[in-house]
């Protein structure tokens, strides 16, 4: 298990429990009461931490090394029915963008999302969750297929950004993202987008146009990462905490500014503390949203989707 700085009090309590248990075993003493007290204390501590998380700490939680990634969610939601589909039919299969069909309850769903890796080797294999143009084109191919067979789409967003490499530029990173924005606006099937980790800029938005855009509790979504924002605006990497505050990138801020449609709660302490519970929360929300969206007429759904994004912005009208 990995612990972030501000999770250290929890780590200490867990260590204490471990020690108490060892002492108990050696001396054949009943420690149930002490352990129970310590466990209660952990819950209390977690509540305290959760109650005063700063935006930067939320960013850190969204990147927690133990946090579940896209395929973890998909596997859990589809209960063994997931069939992964590969390739953009043009260049290659982008390992940073995954997709495929699965059943959520009785409903077939097309899942698409950026994928990060758990080990150094897998992180490289997944390109740290940073797709190239072929990733966005693979996503669009799968979305078009879903539309053809009248299957709703769920995208799971978790990316530090679209990959800013040489080949990506050659193959039209910008065009690939732009095309997805345009095409996703008019998809005839319901589209639900969930930010499960990092929602960085165009790389996130490239699969982020939906009837419902939701954020998990400990995630962020903005035009730039706090680190890059700090380096550009303050010309130093040292202002990332301040940048995280200024960017208003938390789910609460995003909902307040009417830039997302809702927040999905996470287990106490974050999705990494109890992934099964996190999956259950997402599943419950998906069922609820799908049921509602599937009832609507496709044309009306598209109109509503377009109107929603057209209403985004803050400006004044001078008299």
């Amino acid at each position: 298990m990995n612990f972030l700085d501000f999770e250290k009090p929890v780590q200490e309590l867990l260590d204490q429990i471990e020690k108490v248990k060892q002492v108990g075993e050696k001396g054949k003493v009943d420690t149930t009461g002490t352990v129970k007290d310590l466990e209660d204390k952990i819950v209390e501590t977690r509540k305290q931490i959760a109650g005063k998380l700063t935006p930067w700490q939320k960013v850190q939680l969204s990147r927690h090394p133990d946090r579940p990634y896209t395929l973890d969610y998909i596997e859990a939601l589809t209960n063994g029915t997931f069939f992964e589909l590969h390739g953009d039919r043009n260049v290659k299969d982008d390992k940073a963008m995954v997709g495929g069909l699965g059943k959520v309850g009785d409903q077939s769903v097309m899942f698409i999302g950026q994928q990060k890796g758990n080990t150094t080797k897998m992180r490289q294999y997944r390109n740290f969750g940073m797709p190239n143009p072929e990733g966005y084109r693979k996503a669009l191919r799968l979305m078009k297929m879903a539309e053809k067979f009248n299957i709703p789409i769920v995208t799971l967003i978790d990316t530090p950004g679209a990959y800013p490499g040489l080949e990506g530029e050659e193959r039209g990173q910008a065009e690939a993202i732009a095309r997805n924005l345009f095409e996703m606006m008019r998809l005839k099937v319901p589209v639900i987008c969930i930010i499960i980790g990092e929602g960085a800029s165009g790389g996130a938005l490239g699969i982020g146009i939906g009837d419902k855009v939701l954020m998990l509790e400990n995630t962020w979504y903005s035009v730039i990462s706090p680190e890059s924002c700090s380096s550009i605006l303050w010309r130093s990497w040292d202002f990332k905490e301040k940048a995280a505050e200024q960017l208003k990138l938390t789910p609460e801020d995003m909902l307040h500014n009417k830039l997302i449609d809702g927040i999905i709660k996470e287990p106490l302490g974050g999705a990494h503390v109890n992934p099964q519970e996190a999956f259950a929360f997402v599943k419950e929300e998906l069922h609820k949203q799908l049921e509602k969206l599937l009832k609507n007429d496709p044309e009306k759904r598209i109109q509503k989707r377009i109107a929603k994004f057209c209403a985004m912005g803050a400006f004044e009208e001078k008299k």
């Binding site: 732009a178 938005l205 035009v223 730039i224 960017l247 994004f309 985004m312």
Partner: peptide, 23 residues
């Protein structure tokens, strides 16, 4: 590109303009 001082509002202008272009 995007205007950082408008953060996610700025990001969503990409979506907004694309939406209008479909019309």
């Amino acid at each position: 590109g995007a205007r950082m001082m408008e953060a996610a509002f700025s990001l969503m202008q990409m979506a907004k303009t694309s939406a209008k272009l479909t019309l």
